[in-house]
């Protein structure tokens, strides 16, 4: 086969996989929209869960603003500070639940083996689910951001939006590595949700969602340095709210790059090993 033919074939394969990823995304939207009450719930629930964070903050601070918070972060507005951190829980859910859940859901539908005999690599389904849940989560977060920012009159630095989104993109790619790990484990482990639950809880605790990094105990602070969400939150708060950076911006970007390479590589390895294990043991059709 000539080099040109080879390139043509590779290009064809690439577009085939891309189309399959998009087909997965569209399929998920269509199925999701048939469960209308649940679809609506997913848009309302984040507001409900956010409220206790605010109330807790109000109770402790005696109001919305805090000089102490300003002294350690550069931001005095507790509502704005917490809200930005809270948005990241949605991204975490995307990775740990939506992506990790994707293959198990197919098992429940009874369609996993049917799609697994299609001529695309198995990660394509997880990637399709990642695309879907990123769009879904992005939409929820956009609505949340508009409503909360309007209701509480939060002033965001619009000049920093491009950089904030770039940081979020890098963070998301890192989180996808985590999602692929969980998706791979679900092939082999029946009690998949234990892994997912444990990982997401750990990350929520270690990630500075409602508090600055400085208040974490040293061990947890060290641990948080390996998580993309930590840098995502720090970066976004800096660009949208003007939080003082505790780590230099080049370091944040470099570490995010490293994390996404390591997590994605590790995720793919775990996924491929688990896929092979599942096909050896015959665990694909076991619920």
């Amino acid at each position: 086969m000539s080099l040109r033919d080879n390139r043509k074939r590779m290009l064809k394969t690439f577009f085939h996989y891309l189309r399959a990823v998009n087909a997965e995304n569209i399929k998920e939207w269509k199925i999701e929209l048939t469960y209308k009450p649940d679809f609506i719930r997913q848009f309302i629930e984040p507001f409900v869960y956010l409220f206790p964070y605010f109330l807790y903050g109000f109770a402790l601070l005696g109001g919305r603003y805090s000089e102490h918070l300003r002294s350690i972060t550069g931001i005095s507005d507790m509502v704005a500070y917490t809200f930005i951190g809270y948005l990241f829980i949605g991204f975490l859910n995307t990775a740990c639940w939506a992506m990790g859940f994707s293959l198990r859901k197919e098992q429940w539908f009874g369609t996993l083996e049917t799609i697994f005999v299609a001529p695309v690599p198995r990660w394509v389904y997880v990637a399709g689910m990642a695309l879907h849940s990123t769009c879904h989560q992005g939409l929820i977060m956009l609505i949340q951001a508009v409503v909360i920012a309007t209701f509480f009159a939060i002033v965001l630095q619009m000049s920093g939006i491009f950089m904030a989104l770039s940081i979020v993109l890098l963070m998301l790619l890192g989180l996808y590595g985590l999602g692929i790990i969980v998706a791979g484990l679900t092939i082999a482990l029946k009690q998949w949700w234990v892994v997912s639950e444990a990982l997401s809880t750990l990350i929520v605790v270690v990630t500075p969602i409602a508090y600055p990094l400085a208040v974490l105990p040293l061990v947890l602070r060290k641990m948080s340095m390996f998580l993309p969400t930590t840098y995502g939150i720090i970066g976004v708060r800096h660009f949208l709210l003007g939080e003082e950076l505790v780590i230099g911006l080049p370091t944040i970007i470099l570490r995010l790059f490293l994390i996404l390479i390591v997590w994605l590589t590790f995720g793919m390895i775990v996924f491929l090993v688990m896929d092979r294990y599942g096909r050896k043991k015959g665990s694909l059709s076991i619920y």
Binding site: K27, K30, I31, T34, F109, G110, T111, E113, T114, V117
Partner: peptide, 13 residues
């Protein structure tokens, strides 16, 4: 491959 009977389809589609 025809396997899994009627469960091999997406019922909501």
């Amino acid at each position: 491959v025809l396997t899994g009977g009627e469960r091999s389809l997406y019922w909501k589609l």
